[in-house]
Design a protein around this nucleic acid. Structure first.
Lengths: 121, 121
DNA sequence: TGAATATATGAACAAATGCTCATATATTCG
DNA sequence: CGAATATATGAGCATTTGTTCATATATTCA
């Protein structure tokens, strides 16, 4: 069966339509879901996870992060820009170098929750 | 300056080497970081976020999720497989239909933490 | 000011990702 | 059993993503 949106719908029981409507109505607005997904994307890459773990230990300059992760300065710089745009980290200039650090304790909290899930598998 | 790994290293102060070593040593093992990133990838897509929100409201069959999100049954089924492989959801068969539901309350907790971060921007 | 150093960035490219389409599998019911 | 229905899945394709390479910008210091 095809509904008014041109989407297939299970046509066995009437209750399904109620359920579908309810879920549709309770769904958060598109832009909120987009922002949430964008935030999680930051954590969805091992390089960025490593950077966040590194900054969890200490404020660091780009070059040292690159050294610690055995990666290119360019690669790290690109990733730092992405992480910073999500406001998970902040930076301050100190002469020639720029020091990055975690913006707040959300990073640790979010990672902690995820770890908990993984540990229970 | 180039270090023993062939990676550029800041060569201004000796303390940087200590910091780099410390961060290297305190970094979690590669496979743990991989698992964490893989888990966060699940949340890093609006379709999967919508599915999780839908299942947060109620146990649902594939077809109804598709209807609620105005998406193809195939697209939803593909995504459900990905989410299930991360053990965030479980399924049970009921006749012809298969009902999906959240595996535990980690989903809500993790999303909650992220929401908190976004609200404080 | 000009050389050296730290960081940022744009283009290019390979790999990963998400959707569609067609089709396979599994279950129910006549 | 065979038709109908719900779900799963493989191939193909367009988009996104992460890295590299070359180079630009910014700051220090002689």
């Amino acid at each position: 069966m095809i509904d008014k949106h041109g989407i297939e719908v299970c046509d066995t029981q009437e209750t399904h339509f109620d359920k579908v409507s309810f879920v549709r109505d309770s769904m958060p607005p598109e832009d909120e879901l987009f922002d949430l997904a964008e935030l999680f994307k930051i954590f969805g890459d091992t390089t960025r996870m490593k950077i966040l773990y590194a900054l969890f230990e200490s404020e660091m300059c780009v070059c040292d992060i690159a050294a610690a992760l055995d990666m290119t300065q360019s690669a790290i710089s690109h990733q730092l820009r992405i992480i910073k745009s999500a406001r998970l980290i902040k930076s301050r200039r100190l002469g020639r170098t720029i020091l990055y650090s975690l913006a707040d304790d959300h990073v640790a909290t979010i990672i902690g929750m995820a770890k908990e899930h993984l540990e229970e598998l």
